[in-house]
Every structure is written in C-alpha cells, then in structure tokens.
Amino acid sequence: MNYQADWSDKMVQSFFDHDYIDRGMLKWQGYYLSDHTSALNREHAKEKQIITALPQQSASEASVILANAFANGIPISVQLNERDANGKLQADHIGLLRGYTATAIVIGLEQIALDSIRNVQLIK
C-alpha cells in the first residue's frame, strides 16, 4: 500500500494550518543535557557568591607588594574597586604578575589599571 499517494499537498497544508497544535518551547525542554544544566548551575552559584570587600590599600602599600611579587615570581590576588550593576564586587584577579607599565599591571593576559586596585595580597 502506498500511503504517500493518498496525501496531497493541499491536505498536508490544511493539516498544519488547522489541526496541528505546536507545543512551542515544550518540545525543546527535553534537549537540556546534563552538561548544560551543570553549566547553568555553576553560573547561578557564581552570581550568588558574596565577595567581601578587603581594606583599601594606599598606592605605596600596593606597590611594595606588587614589587615583591614581580621580583620573586609569587602569585597575587588583586581586588578591584569596580562593582557590577548590582553593586557587587568583581571576583579577584589571581595569577602571576607578568609585567607593568606606568599606569597598569599585567596578570596573565589581562591589563589592570593601577588606580582601580583596591587590595593586593600575595598567595602562598
């Protein structure tokens, strides 16, 4: 039996226009893989994480710590004065001090302005 011969283009179009009910996003909910779910959960955990403000260091205090870290290859943790739209502090920038300019330091591939630094700590 050939069922395809029984269906005309008009019948098929009529079915989709009048009889078929699209479930919208419901049909996509089964496509969330465990990888996606765990990634979303990690993002939510980061958003909920509260970062406590460390004391504001003077430029000279921060400079001494930065010079020590650079000379001895000690990793550092840098907290910035910048806050996000919700008023929360950003996560600390952690890594080796790779270099510096007159107005900024370089941690990894990231350049950080000296005037935006709140606190610098050596990581042991």
Rank of each mutant, 00 (worst) to 15 (best):
M1R: 11
M1K: 13
M1S: 14
Y3R: 10
A5I: 15
D6V: 14
D6P: 01
W7M: 13
W7N: 07
D9C: 03
D9A: 08
K10I: 07
M11T: 12
M11W: 03
D17I: 02
H18R: 13
D19W: 11
Y20Q: 12
Y20S: 14
R23I: 14
G24L: 14
G24C: 13
L26H: 10
L26A: 13
L26P: 05
W28R: 11
Y31M: 13
Y32H: 04
L33K: 10
L33Y: 11
S34M: 11
S34V: 10
S34E: 13
S38E: 09
A39K: 07
A39I: 07
L40C: 10
R42G: 01
H44A: 12
K46Y: 02
K46H: 05
I50Y: 00
I50F: 02
I50K: 02
I51V: 12
I51M: 04
I51S: 07
T52P: 01
Q56C: 03
Q56W: 01
A59T: 14
A59V: 11
S60I: 15
S60L: 05
A62V: 04
S63M: 05
S63Q: 10
S63P: 07
V64E: 10
I65G: 02
L66F: 10
L66I: 03
A67D: 10
N68R: 10
N68I: 11
F70C: 03
I74D: 11
I74S: 15
I74C: 11
P75R: 09
S77M: 06
V78W: 01
Q79W: 02
E82K: 08
E82S: 12
E82W: 03
R83A: 11
D84E: 09
N86A: 15
N86M: 15
G87V: 04
K88D: 14
L89K: 01
L89Y: 15
D92G: 02
D92N: 15
I94C: 06
I94N: 05
G95P: 05
L96P: 04
L97N: 05
R98A: 14
G99N: 08
G99V: 05
A102N: 05
A104K: 01
I105P: 05
V106W: 06
I107R: 00
I107M: 02
G108K: 03
G108R: 02
G108Y: 06
L109D: 13
E110C: 03
Q111R: 04
A113N: 06
A113P: 00
D115V: 01
S116T: 12
I117N: 01
R118W: 00
V120G: 04
Q121N: 09
L122N: 09
L122M: 10
L122D: 08
L122G: 08
I123N: 09
K124L: 09
